[in-house]
Amino acid sequence: MTAVHDEIMTTEEFEELARLAGRVSEGIRLEFIDGRLGAKAPANGDHGRILQWLIRVFILARPDLFLSIEQGLQVDAYRKGRARPDGALTDADAFVGQGEWAEPAPVLMVVEVTSRDRDTEHRDRREKPVAYAATGIPVYLLVDREFAEITVFSQPVDGRYQRRVTVSIGDSVELPEPVGLALDTEPIKAWV
């Protein structure tokens, strides 16, 4: 996350800023994690293609679930943080009637696909696993294009994922319950 402001901001101030930013530029995606304001880089075609592929995988393997793209979630301690994961796996109606920043309780898994920006190390590899675990999201799938790896974080306990499995893109990896799916990542090689 690229810090644009080092002072503490309230959640309400962030939501207003995010709403205004969305009106000014459709490419800007703001997040507010651990009291820090940040912006995600606009996704490129390969990033989007990986998400399309994951949507198809889940439609075929788990038709009872749906991967929602960029649904805002309330994360972090006391739900004061705001994150916009690349994907949130839930049942199809989980976000019906919710606003821009939904409760994370129905989320079974979040997905992040790294962008080619300077803040990926801090945002996707350090901040997000802590925020998602603290929120109790059971599984975090990180598609790391820089290192050509897939990391699956699971078993959140006391704000930390207890289990972390990393494989090379192209290998198969198990998405543990409540997802319960073996993911063959060979097709992703074309988009890394």
Rank of each mutant, 00 (worst) to 15 (best):
M1N: 07
M1R: 08
T2M: 13
A3T: 14
V4M: 06
H5L: 13
D6N: 14
I8H: 03
T10P: 01
E12H: 10
E16Q: 15
R23S: 02
S25W: 15
I28G: 10
F32T: 07
F32M: 09
I33S: 00
D34E: 15
L37I: 06
A39Q: 15
A43W: 07
N44E: 07
D46S: 11
H47G: 01
G48E: 10
Q52W: 09
L54M: 13
I55T: 13
I55S: 13
V57I: 13
L60G: 05
L60K: 15
A61W: 15
A61T: 14
R62D: 12
L65H: 14
I69W: 10
Q71D: 01
Q71K: 12
G72Y: 13
R79L: 14
G81T: 02
A83E: 11
D86G: 12
G87R: 06
L89W: 15
T90A: 02
A94S: 06
F95S: 05
V96Q: 09
E100G: 05
A105D: 15
V107R: 01
V110F: 01
V110A: 12
V110N: 02
V110C: 13
T120D: 12
R125I: 11
V130L: 15
I137R: 00
V143K: 01
D144H: 06
D144P: 12
E149N: 10
I150M: 02
T151R: 08
T151L: 03
T151N: 03
P156F: 13
D158F: 05
G159I: 02
Q162D: 12
R163W: 00
V165R: 04
V167R: 13
L175P: 06
L175Q: 12
L175N: 07
P176F: 08
P178M: 04
G180M: 11
L181Y: 08
A182L: 13
E186A: 15
W191L: 09
W191H: 03
